[in-house]
Design a protein around this nucleic acid. Structure first.
Length: 560
RNA sequence: UGGGGCGUCGCCAAGUGGUAAGGCACCGGACUUUGGAUCCGGCAUUCGCAGGUUCGAUCCCUGCCGCCCCAGCCA
């Protein structure tokens, strides 16, 4: 069951459902999530998944997982597998309700026969191009096909022979007989079946004709007695056709309701475009951590709960919108702050030598694993005479509000000692390569017995004990807020951010090498990082930056 | 100039006749062994525009303006 999941706010679909339940028009809520297995799920699908499963849970109904697989050309089992994995990862359970439109092909065929017998469908010999020409334009009505008047008997015979494979691919189609003058193009005798001798990943070569979306989707809903068939805005024009099939077939009246699809700034959310990024090698695969796919977000370190929280916060409405990526990042930080173990890792190392600390000595300092969660306990971190600190935590000539290390300044090493910088060592080209410091043995653990305060606390790692970590820092995949808004003659590909990933070697606490693939940590004062699910190992630790920590110092710097 | 939709704060989004929720972002301040977290405070006299109805309209009516979708035998 999915009862454990968070409820969402109020929206128009919920209002419609409450209305129909109250009036007695409906007595149950049955929804479905109907992906076509021709690509990986992305966060836009997560919105639909949370909506459909969420509504079912909230109203004590059910939500089916249905693969909308009526086009054999692009569908594959690999995609079915990834979709199942992603929906489950998101935290939703469809129990035994896993359906396939392709399992309904026989029933769909019978229903097509019903329409033919009613004189509501006919076999058309026009070519694809001729059908297009006959369809008319947005402002002019279409023309009827010369084959529109065929007898029921002839249509029955022809349709059966289409199924039997008597005709070449594309030579005939079955069309609904509606109205070639309709303002809505979808009602100008839409195609219901096409001849296609393609190997279907589940049906094999059992069929030589395949139903189109319009003749498969709504009927599948009806078969499953779906009460609310939720889809995105671009299907609004299809609703009259959706209802036409239900009425003329006299089958269970599912109701289609449309809502706006999700857009997020600095990325694209269309399967077609994501596939292009993968196929043209702009990213390393569907699960590249820069991808807005669920597998990409997961690998990047986004927790499923954060994605669900995001989906609940963005709301459901009918206005086109682009949600700020910052909201998704906020959701990740909120969950990770509560759950991620803290560790120290230095991303841009600068050597520090504690001159008054005995050479060769090592001690273990106790560090809190998560200040937000006492049950996470503590760990021991090795300390010795030579350390790595963050290069950005030292300034030779610091501005007044800089609280970190500088010549003559004292700071606290997190969970360690107070140290004071006494000298700066440079190389031939004048770069700072090492800091000489002294420590105060009385301040072990980070408190001074004399009550002395320091403004700054910096993270560090013992040079001798440090584990080298491969760190992958990610930035926006696209430079533009709306990548689809491309300059004249260019495409969204031209808006790709050339610096969307940078790799570097960091020095981390030794325990980081023991991290499990996929495990998330907060590298203190830096951000949240997840051990890469593909490349991480204790011999070669690899971490992906999920999101940075908020950094008010960096923001203040930027302002001035 | 056909049909279908949508326009409420920088970004999302409630509200739909009684005088503008909330979140993100942003800006202050408190606190702090993460310049993190947390806490407190600020942030639309105004709801695309113009008329009208009404004691009263973001919500009703009329007319404009702007944006999105549709001419696949894709979904």
């Amino acid at each position: 069951m999915n009862d454990h999941l968070e409820p969402s706010g109020s929206h128009f679909i919920k209002a419609i459902i409450e209305g129909e339940l109250a009036s007695g028009k409906r007595d149950a809520v049955r929804t479905r999530f109907p992906p076509e297995p021709n690509g990986y799920l992305h966060i836009g699908h997560a919105k639909a998944i949370c909506l459909n499963f969420g509504l079912a849970a909230e109203f004590g109904g059910t939500c089916n997982l249905r693969f909308d697989d009526s086009n054999p050309l692009s569908e594959r089992q690999e995609y079915v597998d990834s979709i199942r994995e992603d929906v489950a990862w998101l935290g939703f359970d469809w129990e035994d309700r896993e359906y396939y439109a392709s399992d309904y092909f026989e029933q769909l065929y019978d229903w097509a026969v019903v329409l033919i017998k009613k004189g509501k469908a006919y076999v058309d010999d026009l070519s694809a191009e001729e059908i297009r020409e006959h369809r008319g334009t947005l402002t002019e009505p279409g023309r009827e096909s010369p084959y529109r008047g065929r007898s029921v008997e002839e249509n029955l015979d022809l349709f059966e022979r289409m199924r039997n494979g008597d005709f070449p691919d594309g030579s005939k189609v079955l069309r609904a007989k509606i109205d070639m003058a309709a303002g809505n193009l979808n009602m100008r005798d839409p195609v219901m079946y096409r001849i296609l001798r393609a190997e279907h990943y589940r049906q094999g070569s059992a069929w030589s004709i395949y139903p189109t979306y319009d003749f498969a989707h709504g009927q599948s809903d009806s078969l499953e007695r779906i009460t609310y068939s939720l889809c995105t805005l671009e299907f609004e024009d299809h609703r009259p056709l959706y209802d036409w099939f239900i009425e003329n077939l006299e089958i269970f009246p599912s109701r289609q309701i449309e809502f706006a699809r999700l857009n997020i700034s600095h990325t694209v959310l269309s399967k077609r475009k994501l596939r292009l990024l993968v196929e043209d090698g702009h990213v390393a695969g569907w699960d590249d951590p820069r991808m807005p796919t669920l597998s990409g977000l997961r690998r990047r370190g986004y927790p499923a709960g954060a994605v669900r929280d995001f989906c609940n916060r963005i709301g459901i409405a009918k206005a086109d919108s682009i949600v700020d990526l910052a909201l998704l990042q906020h959701c990740a930080r909120e969950e990770l702050n509560r759950t991620a173990l803290r560790r120290m890792a230095v991303l841009d190392p600068l050597k520090v030598v504690i001159e008054n600390y005995p050479e060769g000595e090592t001690e273990e300092l106790e560090a809190v694993n998560n200040p937000e969660d006492d049950s996470a306990g503590t760990r021991l971190v090795p300390f010795s005479r030579e350390l790595w600190i963050e290069r950005a935590d030292f300034m030779e000539d610091p501005p007044k509000k800089f609280f970190r290390l500088a010549p003559g300044r004292e700071v606290r090493l997190r969970w360690g000692y107070f140290i004071t910088c006494t000298d700066v060592v440079r190389n031939d080209s004048g770069e700072v390569v090492e800091l000489r410091c002294t420590y105060d043995p009385e301040t072990r653990g980070g408190q001074a017995p004399d009550g002395r305060k320091v403004r700054g606390t910096i993270h560090w790692v013992s040079a001798r004990h440090a584990a080298p970590l491969e760190i992958r820092l990610y930035d926006h995949l696209f430079t533009r807020e709306n990548p689809n808004q491309a300059d004249e003659g260019k495409s969204f590909i031209d808006n790709l951010n050339p610096d969307s990933v940078t790799v570097r070697t960091a020095q981390g606490e030794p325990s980081l090498a023991e991290a499990k693939a996929g495990q998330s940590f907060q590298f203190e004062r830096q951000g949240y990082f997840a051990a890469d699910s593909r490349d991480h190992s204790s011999e070669r630790p690899v971490f992906n930056r999920t999101v940075t920590l908020r950094d008010s110092w960096a923001r203040a710097q930027k302002r001035s």
